[in-house]
Amino acid sequence: MPDYTRRVAKAPALVGGFVLPSGPRLPRVGSVDAVALEERAATLAKRSIKRESKVQALRLAVRMMDLTTLEGQDTPGKVAALCSKAIRPDPVDRSVPSVAAVCVYPSLAGVAKERLAGSGVRVASVATAFPSGQSPVEIKIAETRAVVELGADEVDMVIDRGAFLSGRYAKVYDEIVRVKEVCGDAHLKVILETGELGTYDNVRRASLIAIAAGADFIKTSTGKINPAATLPVTLCMMEVVRDVYAETGRMVGIKPAGGIRVSKQAVQYLVVLYETLGREWMTPDLFRFGASSLLNDVLMQLRKEKTGLYQSGDYFTID
């Protein structure tokens, strides 16, 4: 027996649950300079695209849309109407494609499933005590299991911002891992609620935690907090996704949500997406817009491009 005392240095084992993925390493956390990030986003927002490209971009935006209703007053009737709109956004112009998904509260996931059956439009349900995420983890897991059983193809979970902002990153990570486990085949979108994170550095850090824990998509916002999605914050998340792809080859999706109301904004997001991640990401499989009023504005723009006349909202169904 060597002559050790009890105080010889000895490191504890790693904290359970917070195990870094082996294999290709993840990018360093790094940091973000706000001024330069915002300037880059502003510069890209000034790009003008060709008319033909614009029509394509708008049709793509429709296909990328998660048509959303997340209100306390949501009813089966409201959701049913929204589902019809999702399948056939413009009854007058049948060339307009369906949206990607309809995004609802858990209690309405079943209604949406029924209404969208066979349409190809997917059912997305929020979960994990949306929007605050302030519930015991067991409840979050149970809720996720429930929406998957109700037929959700996609689960939009929120991270625990309270845990994140108090530095308990392992808890944030752990929750995502456990929610992911019960998602089964459903795709997991992790909402960072960037409007509550305070800095782009935090957005970057939260994005990396979510991706490391198994997020299929990272999503900006719940839509309940201002600011919701912004061009720079989305660019910041795209840069993380680009780094992850460069390091690991894994393609993570991105979903800006909230605050995107007009076609021009949607096109700006697509320009930023194209310049940052390239053509490969220009698909509903890897990019979504979380929006409600955006759809009609895009439809009006598409009609305008077709007819050459500026449009009125009265000619488009509200849901």
């Binding site: 060709k50 494609p97 299929d216 509903p284």
Partner: peptide, 20 residues
Amino acid sequence: QVEKRESSAPAPAPLEWEYA
């Protein structure tokens, strides 16, 4: 991580992305 979804709409043409 997301497989291609089947859609009732015809398969979209490859994306043209040209700045005017």
